[in-house]
């Protein structure tokens, strides 16, 4: 049976204003949501199941509050929801070590995740997990078709490339040219009742530690002009002042 795992992460709503207090981002007033690219990963995982059969497990690492996004995944059709309990900040080595163990324990034919999380923007988890599992990986896929292997389209150096990806594999998902499904009432009811499987896995110590978070330096006010004729002056300044032409 094809067992599919999709990694999901809770992040601040991308519309939220970010505040900083005492050198730390303050998210207390911010709505938390599933990271936008993870929605494409969930959709791709469900399509994979629809094409070949099998089961989809949504997996997250975090505290109890992160269960909301697991319920969101359940509401649109994943079979199982699992949370690896963790309160602490982990560096990529620690997080990937935990995820590797989780995927080995659960067993999987394929793992999907978003191309990057909307908070860090790093995009390290998919390829890092694949390396630790000794699996193939392709990042930033925009579409996939499923059989014994996966045929995935991802950007290459001279345009998109269609790749044949042997299984097991980890695929990170970019926005594809498809719509992600929305939950229906039945799904939402089922998600309410669904129970989250909680595991704990010991993480190695982190060697990368947070020093400080801050707001980006404010940009000095730019020059502003009224009317299209000013475009001539701006063109001159781009060459003579900004030196970018």
């Amino acid at each position: 049976m094809t067992t599919i795992i999709v990694l999901v992460k809770q992040v601040p709503d991308t519309n939220a204003k970010i505040a900083v207090n005492n050198g730390r981002v303050d998210l207390s007033a911010v709505k938390m949501v599933m990271s936008p690219y993870d929605e494409f990963a969930v959709e791709t995982a469900l399509r994979h199941r629809e094409a070949v059969g099998g089961e989809v497990t949504a997996l997250t690492v975090g505290g109890p509050a992160a269960e909301k996004i697991l319920k969101d995944a359940k509401a649109i059709g994943v079979d199982h929801i699992v949370r690896i309990d963790s309160a602490e900040e982990m560096d990529s080595n620690a997080l990937q070590t935990v995820l590797t163990k989780a995927v080995q324990d659960l067993g999987a034919t394929v793992v999907y995740c978003g191309k990057s999380a909307a908070d860090t923007g790093a995009g390290s988890t998919g390829p890092g997990l694949a390396e630790r599992l000794g699996w193939a990986s392709v990042s930033n896929i925009i579409s996939a078709t499923f059989s014994d292997s996966i045929s995935a389209v991802a950007p290459g150096s001279g345009g998109n490339v269609k790749l044949s990806v042997p299984l097991p594999a980890v695929l990170s998902c970019d926005k594809g040219d498809f719509k992600v499904r929305k939950p229906n009432v039945k799904g939402i009811m089922q998600a309410k009742k669904a129970s989250v499987e909680v595991h704990s896995i010991e993480a190695p110590a982190s060697s990368v530690t947070l020093v400080d978070q801050s707001l980006p330096p404010a940009k000095p006010a730019g020059k502003s002009y009224q009317g299209g004729a000013a475009a001539a002056e701006v063109a001159q300044l781009l060459r003579d002042e900004a030196n970018v032409l």
């Binding site: 991308t14 970010i18 908070d119 923007g121 947070l210 020093v211 978070q213 801050s214 707001l215 980006p216």
Partner: peptide
Amino acid sequence: VYSGKAMQSV
């Protein structure tokens, strides 16, 4: 981080 809405030093 946060799509450029904050900077993070590690």
